[in-house]
Design a protein around this nucleic acid. Sequence first.
DNA 1: TATTGTTATACTCTATAACTATA
DNA 2: TATAGTTATAGAGTATAACAATA
Lengths: 154, 154
Amino acid sequence: MTADRLGFLLARHGQTMKLRLREALSVCGLGPRHGAILLRLAQAGSISQQALLEALTVDASTLVAILNDLERDALTERRRDPTDRRRHIVEITPEGRSAACAVEHAVADVEREAFADLDAEEIAQLHTLLARVHVRPTTEPGAGTECAPGCAPE
Amino acid sequence: MTADRLGFLLARHGQTMKLRLREALSVCGLGPRHGAILLRLAQAGSISQQALLEALTVDASTLVAILNDLERDALTERRRDPTDRRRHIVEITPEGRSAACAVEHAVADVEREAFADLDAEEIAQLHTLLARVHVRPTTEPGAGTECAPGCAPE
DNA sequence: TATTGTTATACTCTATAACTATA
DNA sequence: TATAGTTATAGAGTATAACAATA
């Protein structure tokens, strides 16, 4: 069942993984993005909002909504950057660390099941390879080959 | 920048790939799912609607909408299975084959750019590994480890 | 009664554009 | 003027549930 383009395969499995993560994290009342942010913060303690934007590949307005949720639940806090009062720095709270721990467990469960057929080395390989795919387009849109002649429908 | 859970990484890159595929295929007036179905049909000629459901991991109602689009553009046709008139068999039309060719090119462009940092062998590895992740949950929901005590917020 | 396909609908996610504040 | 963040809103995608036809 590998009779599928790698691009489609990646898109499809990514979608499935997102759905599973959502289900697993719904126990904690969080979405996948919320979880990813909490884990980052649990590692780093505090991150600038800009850095989160780059790391998570989300729209700025989306990030605001997520941070509002987290702050409403007292899991994170935003404070102004003293050196540039336009910028926000996001910090994790003690409650946030507890939640991050829960997220860690939930994600680990999902991963254990999803990657059950791979051994540790293969999982590491997959991780490394995935980390090396380009997330952002490097060339201008439209730079590639156009649709072949006579291909366009309608 | 591998400081990320594999699950989150897969979900995020899958999302990005889907967006890129959508952009590339919009030239042909098709969505990613439309493209994936066309490629399948270009290979097999005809597939039962049930088989498409399993292969694409989409909801039945979603598939209906996609097939309606394809049929409206005269790229595919549905006919009843003579042996069981409840079932539909989806067939590709000549126009559909042309469109599939366009899809092939567009997807190849996206893949070339996204996997530019991987050599042919690594791409094949990634493909093989991805094909071996479990798409569907094998255990009942809730069978895994629950959130650690004191972890749940609010 | 169970299965296949369909329709209608509600819900979520995401992106777009306009607005505020700081620089 | 340009940047960081926010808000409101519209659009697309997906899932849920009820329905029709066939087995």
